[in-house]
Simulated assay, not measured.
Amino acid sequence: MWILWLIAVLCVIYYVIIVAYSGLSTSFSIIWLLLAACCILFGVGWDAYLKQKDKVPLWIPVSVVTICCTGILVFTIVEILVFTGVAVRDTSKLDYVIVLGARVKEDGISKSLKNRLDKAIDYLDENPGTILVLSGAKGEDEPVSEAEAMRDYLVFNGVKETQLILEARSYSTVENIAYSRVAIEEDQERKKVESQESPIMMDPGTYEEVPDKPIKIGVLTSDFHVFRAQQIARKWGIPDIYGISCKSDPVLFVHFCVRECVAILKDKLVGNM
């Protein structure tokens, strides 16, 4: 079928574009070449089936079509969840916002990370009392940890270091959330100790004890990534997590959506969300 050949050509062209644009040739981008190969294989198989329809058992084409349709249906459902499953909530005046890291290059931060950090700066401008938890370790091909790179960028753009907590141990979204939660708990304990060491003196009978106010935590990441980050956070001890999304790179948007679909299915299967 000509449509399969057209899709195969588009997949190869898109692969070349994303590799030339961002240098992702060693990562998940290889999926586009695999998709192109699958389309070519299906196209050749379909032509062969039409020529020898009487010799091919009916269950073979039915199985192939069923598998393809199921895959398309699953992908569609996941993408609907990704972009409509995040409820619109008031994210103002959060106590902590976990900023998820992204690739750091030799010559600076990636566009995805810059978009997240610019969003974090805008958020702090409107909510100066919020603490940012910068989450991300140093990958093998990264000059510094993602947390350090984020701190340097934010400080350079006027954010006070006292508003930043670095979490530089995590290599995945699950670890981002888990270690950031620990960092927040440690910061809360530190603040409790400081408040006990410097009590506010008041006359007896002029105050009453009130229960501790529950802290409000958000997670800031790219638009396609918010759903998975929230689901992982709910699974790993932050049930009332607020999602804050930023725009993603338009050239890599389709690539990120496909990658995110695979990541969501994997995390669901292994129990991360």
Rank of each mutant, 00 (worst) to 15 (best):
W2M: 13
L6P: 01
L6G: 04
L6I: 14
A8S: 13
Y15A: 00
Y15S: 01
V19R: 02
A20C: 05
A20N: 08
G23N: 08
S25K: 10
S25L: 07
T26W: 06
F28S: 10
S29Q: 05
I30R: 07
I30T: 15
I31C: 03
W32F: 15
L33N: 02
L33V: 12
L35P: 00
I40H: 10
I40P: 02
I40S: 10
L41N: 05
G45N: 06
G45M: 09
D47W: 12
K51N: 12
K53I: 02
L58Y: 14
I60Q: 06
P61N: 07
V62W: 07
G71H: 02
I72E: 01
L73I: 12
I77V: 15
V78I: 08
V86R: 07
A87T: 11
D90C: 12
D95N: 14
Y96Q: 07
G101A: 08
A102R: 03
R103K: 15
K105R: 13
E106R: 05
D107L: 06
S110K: 02
K114I: 09
N115F: 15
L117T: 09
I121S: 02
E126P: 00
N127C: 13
T130I: 13
V133L: 02
V133K: 01
L134Y: 11
K138L: 11
E140D: 15
P143H: 12
P143Q: 06
E146T: 08
E146W: 09
A147L: 11
V155I: 14
N157I: 06
V159D: 04
E161Q: 11
E161V: 11
L164E: 08
E167W: 12
S170M: 09
S172I: 05
V174I: 06
N176C: 07
S180E: 06
S180Q: 07
R181M: 03
V182H: 01
I184Y: 06
E186S: 13
E186T: 07
E186K: 15
D187P: 00
Q188K: 13
K192T: 03
K192E: 12
K192W: 02
E194N: 12
E194R: 15
S195W: 07
Q196Y: 13
Q196S: 15
P199T: 06
M201K: 03
M201W: 06
P204I: 10
T206I: 04
T206L: 05
Y207V: 12
E208A: 08
E208Y: 12
E208T: 11
E209C: 09
E209F: 14
D212N: 14
I215E: 04
I215V: 15
K216M: 08
K216S: 14
V219F: 08
F224Q: 00
V226C: 07
Q231L: 08
I232G: 00
W236F: 15
I238C: 03
Y242Q: 09
I244G: 11
P250Q: 02
P250T: 04
V258N: 03
D267W: 03
G271Q: 01
M273E: 01
M273S: 04
